[in-house]
Write a protein that binds this DNA or RNA. Sequence first.
DNA 1: CTTTCTGCAAACTCTTTGCACTCGT
DNA 2: ACGAGTGCAAAGAGTTTGCAGAAAG
Lengths: 154, 154
Amino acid sequence: MKSRRTRQLAAVYDVVAAAHDHPTAEDVCDRVRRQVPRISLGTVYRNLQKLVAQQQLRAVHLADRPTRYDGMLAAHDHFLCERCGSVADLQQTMPSPMDSSRLLESGYEVRAHALTFYGVCPTCRRAEEKPLGRARRTRSEEPATASATRSGRP
Amino acid sequence: MKSRRTRQLAAVYDVVAAAHDHPTAEDVCDRVRRQVPRISLGTVYRNLQKLVAQQQLRAVHLADRPTRYDGMLAAHDHFLCERCGSVADLQQTMPSPMDSSRLLESGYEVRAHALTFYGVCPTCRRAEEKPLGRARRTRSEEPATASATRSGRP
DNA sequence: CTTTCTGCAAACTCTTTGCACTCGT
DNA sequence: ACGAGTGCAAAGAGTTTGCAGAAAG
């Protein structure tokens, strides 16, 4: 039952590790296909699962949305923008030691926790505050909207 | 486009509000059927959705498990026992004001957040620590608190 | 009456799986 | 060669939806 180094497994890992946008399994599949054209979605799922089990990748579960994958292993939280669907990493927002200890005292064994914030990201907020009223503000800075991760199906 | 007060809607609300175990949609359907035998799962889903949208109920999204519903509206977190599948309410473990404010300063608009701990609950831990000479598998799913109702469907 | 809601079943989305074949080791 | 891994397609789980008929206002 030894794990083999296949081109598919390596490609899946590489894609997620290199991504900054928390891709879904389908996103990963699309990207991996640039290297391994014939890889199937099933294989992508199997390999993502394996890498998550081996703690080489993390799965990010979001309300009502497909699971996304993250190459960042350090403890951190997430922010999901409900406008554009992008997911941002947040530097360990919660002082987990404090919270977990209370649970421990209550007899719980905490193995993991997930903290996710839902709302509107800075980019979408800015985009929203402009459209209404007469364009009075001559604020010109409009940071690239490129950060928006594709999240839904076309 | 006015919302009507139907027996089904009321029953769905009542079941979730009275429940202490964070039932799934299927659990809710089974229970509501004791009052409204012919209610369909589709109607249960539609009503749960409506009640959540109206903030009368909350949806609890868990990693790799079906959504569960909660009648407790006060801010609180959850603990999912990976052994027995039970979900426990945790009294506002996180001091959210602190965390959210930092996000606000960064330009995020936080509309909600979800904090869930995963691990083993006190009951399962006790059962485990008083071994009868058997090791444990990481596999589980036992309706210790009544939540895993399986119903056959064609 | 008018409009929303319901039951049913089919459709959908995301994910997993069985099987024969392929490719690491 | 052996068997874990792959591709494909089909199956599964969970949830949504189209429609004709039921029922709330």
